[in-house]
Write a protein that binds this DNA or RNA. Structure first.
Length: 461
RNA sequence: GGCCCCUUCGUCUAGCGGUUAGGAUCCAUGGUUUUCAUCCAUGUUACAGGAGUUCGAGUCUCCUAGGGGUCACCA
C-alpha cells in the first residue's frame, strides 16, 4: 500500500510548482491504488488564511485531482504534538533551552564573523543548574553530534549529511507551539505515509525530520525530492514570470488536461511520449523516472498541448467551457459547424471565443488597409453576381457554398482571390480566418447577403 | 561563506560503456488550403570545460566553472 500526500501551507494560491509535486504524489498513489492525503500546514503563523485553503481546494477541483478522506489541519492536532514533546522531554531526548533571542543573535553574529556555519552551540543540552529568571524556554531536540545522517532519496540517490550540520533545533517555541520540522515528521508518520514526494527545497529538512523519526521510533518513509521549476532564464520562478497561480490558467483559457500534461512532462518522462491522458499518466508514472535536474518553465509547449486538447475536445464540453469566455453556443443549432470552423484556430479558449465572435458578430468597421487590398474596381460587380447566384442556389451543406464561389470564378473568369478576399473582408472585416464556405454556412444566406451589401455600401461612401 | 544537489539542441527531454546522439516544442523552408490556422514533409541547433579509467565515455572517477537549494522560536 502506497500512501502519499500534499501538504501545503495556506498562505496563498496554489502555485504551479505545488501542483506538479502534488500531481506526482497523486499519480503515484492512484497508480498503486493507494491513498493520496491532504494536510494543511497551518501551524499558526499570522500568514495563514481560510481563503487560501479554499483557493487550494478549488484548484484541485479544477484539475480534477481528488484526495482521500478528510483534509487534515495541523492546527487541530496540537495536543498530539504536545504529547510527543512531553514524551521526548521525559526520555531525555529533548530539553529546555533558556537562551534568549538576543543571545542567539549574538552567537550567530559571532559565528558569522569567524566565517563559521551558524548553529546553536548546545549550551543547554546537558544543563542541570537553575534556569535564568524571566526566560520562557524553547524545547530543543537532541540531534546526533557525530557521524552521518543518511537516506536514500528516490530521485537524487544516496544523500549523506554530516550530523554536525544538523544542530539541536527547536521543536517547540517559547509559547509551546511546535515547529514545522517536528510536526511534519509526526504527521507523516501518523498518517502512514510511505512515500513523501516534495520539492527539493525540503532536502535539507529531511535530516532534521529523520532526527525526529528516530527519536520517536517511527518508521522512515521513502523520500523523493523533485527539483525546482525555474523561469526561462533558469532563475527562480516568480510572479513576474507570468502566471504562477494555477487558477490563472483557467482564466487564460487553458484546459486542465493540457496543464497537467505539460506539468507531468516537466521533470518526468516516459520515453518519447509527449501526450498523456490522465489515465495514461496514472498507468505510466513512476517516481524513478523523475529527473534530477531542475527544469525551465516555457509556455510554448503548454500552448501547443492546449491547442491539441481543444482540437480533440467533444463539442458539448467545449460549448460548456466557452460560456465562461462570453460565448454561449450551447443551444445554437449550428454549434458543430461553428466549432469545426474555429477550433483549429484557437490555441486557448480565449482565442477560440474571439474566433467565434468574429463570425457571430457582423463587422462594425473595416480596416482601411484590408479594404483597399481586397476591394478593386470590379469587386462590387463580382459580389453582386455572387449574391445573385447564392439566392438561386440550393444550399444544404458547407460544400454548396463553395460551389457558388466556384461558379462565380468560372462565370467571371477570375481567380479565386478576386472573390475570396472581398468576401472575407465583407463577412469578417478581417483578411484571415475560417473557411468562407464554413462561415457562410453558419451565417446563412440572409446574413451573408446583408454583410456583403453593407460592405458594398461602405465602398461607395 | 559552509554544506547539499544539478549540468545533452533556445526550451522540455531520450540515452543507462560501442547510436550517423533520438523525439517534442520553437524557428525556417516547402506542400496542402481562396486567406489564416490545422495537417504533412524537410532543415538548422546539444553532450559546460579539463584530466583520468577503458580497446572504446554523453554514460564511470576526479578537478574546474556555472546554476540551484539550504543554513529561523517561517513553512
Amino acid at each position: 500500500m502506497i500512501t502519499t500526500r500534499f501538504a501545503p501551507s495556506p498562505t496563498g494560491y496554489l502555485h504551479i510548482g505545488g501542483l506538479r509535486t502534488s500531481l506526482f504524489s497523486w499519480l503515484w498513489a492512484r497508480k498503486n491504488e493507494g491513498q493520496f492525503l491532504l494536510r494543511i500546514e497551518d501551524t499558526d503563523l499570522a500568514r495563514n488564511s481560510e481563503e487560501a485553503v479554499e483557493a487550494i481546494l478549488k484548484a484541485f477541483d479544477w484539475v480534477g485531482m481528488s484526495y482521500d478522506g478528510e483534509a487534515i489541519f495541523q492546527s487541530k492536532r496540537f495536543n498530539l504534538y504536545k504529547k510527543y514533546i512531553e514524551q521526548l522531554l521525559e526520555e531525555g531526548k529533548a530539553y529546555k533551552c533558556y537562551m534568549t533571542k538576543d543571545e542567539l543573535t549574538a552567537l550567530r553574529e559571532e559565528q558569522m564573523a569567524k566565517g563559521e556555519r551558524t548553529r546553536y552551540d548546545g549550551r543547554y543540552r546537558d544543563f542541570t543548574g537553575t534556569p535564568p529568571e524571566g526566560v520562557e524556554p524553547v524545547i530543543r531536540i537532541k540531534a546526533p553530534q557525530e557521524g552521518m545522517i543518511s537516506f536514500n532519496d528516490g530521485v537524487k540517490g544516496e544523500i549523506n549529511i554530516a550530523a554536525t550540520e544538523v544542530d539541536d533545533f527547536v521543536i517547540a517555541r517559547a509559547g509551546g507551539v511546535p515547529t514545522y520540522n517536528f510536526v511534519v515528521a509526526i504527521d507523516d508518520a501518523q498518517m502512514g505515509l510511505t512515500d513523501v514526494i516534495r520539492g527539493d527545497d525540503h532536502l535539507y529538512n529531511t535530516p532534521k525530520q529523520i532526527v525526529v523519526y528516530e527519536a520517536l521510533g517511527f518508521k522512515i518513509p521513502n523520500f523523493y525530492h523533485v527539483a525546482m521549476i525555474n523561469n526561462e532564464k533558469g532563475k527562480k520562478l516568480s510572479k513576474r514570470d507570468g502566471a504562477t497561480d494555477v487558477m490563472e490558467y483557467k482564466t487564460l483559457g487553458y484546459l486542465p488536461e493540457a496543464l497537467l500534461n505539460f506539468l507531468v512532462r516537466l521533470g518526468w518522462s516516459h520515453g518519447d511520449q509527449e501526450i498523456f491522458s490522465v489515465e495514461e499518466m496514472i498507468e505510466l508514472f513512476d517516481p524513478k523516472d523523475i529527473n534530477k535536474s531542475s527544469s525551465n518553465y516555457n509556455l510554448d509547449k503548454l500552448l501547443w498541448l492546449n491547442a491539441h486538447y481543444i482540437k480533440n475536445k467533444p463539442h458539448d464540453e467545449l460549448a460548456e467551457l466557452l460560456v465562461d469566455f462570453g460565448v454561449d453556443i450551447r443551444e445554437n443549432d449550428k454549434r458543430d459547424l461553428i466549432l469545426n470552423a474555429t477550433k483549429e484556430r484557437g490555441k486557448t479558449l480565449v482565442e477560440l471565443a474571439s474566433q467565434i465572435n468574429l463570425i457571430l458578430n457582423a463587422p462594425t468597421e473595416y480596416n482601411a488597409k484590408n479594404f483597399k487590398k481586397a476591394f478593386k474596381e470590379d469587386t462590387p460587380e463580382i459580389l453582386n453576381t455572387f449574391m445573385k447566384l447564392l439566392k438561386e442556389a440550393d444550399l444544404n451543406e458547407v460544400a454548396d457554398y463553395h460551389k457558388v464561389m466556384e461558379a462565380v470564378v468560372e462565370q467571371k473568369e477570375i481567380g479565386f482571390g478576386k472573390i475570396g478576399m472581398p468576401l472575407r473582408v465583407s463577412l469578417l472585416g478581417s483578411m484571415t480566418g475560417s473557411g468562407l464556405d464554413e462561415i457562410m454556412a453558419i451565417l446563412g444566406v440572409d446574413e451573408t447577403i446583408k454583410r456583403i451589401n453593407k460592405a458594398i455600401e461602405f465602398i461607395n461612401v
